[in-house]
């Protein structure tokens, strides 16, 4: 392990209880958690590698593969679901040619569904890199994607 590479972890106390925080810090920098990151976290928090992997794989937040430049989260919360989030997902999927859980070949977009973004009153919604877009219909969805593609 390159000691310098993970210097930013030093802001977090190296106790096992802070593992999730540490992993969040890693993911915030890299967008995902690699095998090497797991090894580094295990060393830093004095845990077995398999424990780190066990914790990490339990939580939906952690990604094991690099995401695209734009991380699209289609909300499938209850309100969004009854307002047709399955169709939104369909449309995004068709437009980008990737399924939920995938990243496109150019590493521009990655697509996933999330349980709830807490913007139920604007259902159906999706977020791109954390920015929420609400009251989606097909036209709006496609337009948002096209704008991001152009950027």
């Amino acid at each position: 392990m390159e000691q310098t590479e993970y210097d930013y972890l030093k802001k977090i106390a190296p106790e096992p209880g802070n593992l999730i925080k540490g992993l969040q810090a890693i993911q915030a920098r890299e967008g995902y958690v690699s095998d090497d990151d797991i090894r580094a976290a295990a060393t830093y928090f004095s845990l077995a590698e398999v424990e780190v992997e066990g914790v990490l794989s339990f939580y939906a937040q952690f990604k094991r593969n690099p995401p695209g430049k734009y991380r699209i989260c289609v909300c499938d919360g209850t309100a969004c679901h009854i307002k047709g989030s399955a169709l939104i997902l369909d449309w995004v999927s068709t437009e980008l040619g990737i399924k939920a859980g995938e990243t496109d070949a150019k590493k521009l977009f990655s697509l996933e569904t999330v349980a709830c973004l807490g913007c139920c009153s604007l259902a159906p919604v999706m977020s791109i890199n954390g920015k929420v877009f609400g009251n989606l219909d097909r036209k709006a969805t496609v337009k948002i994607l096209k704008e991001h593609r152009k950027k």
Partner: peptide
């Protein structure tokens, strides 16, 4: 402490495990 995306962590004892850095 930020949760990391697990509905079950609304459950007291699960939440505590999560706070302890566990599954």
């Amino acid at each position: 402490k930020e949760g990391a995306g697990a509905f079950v962590c609304g459950e007291e004892t699960a939440l505590i495990h999560s706070l302890e850095g566990k599954r």
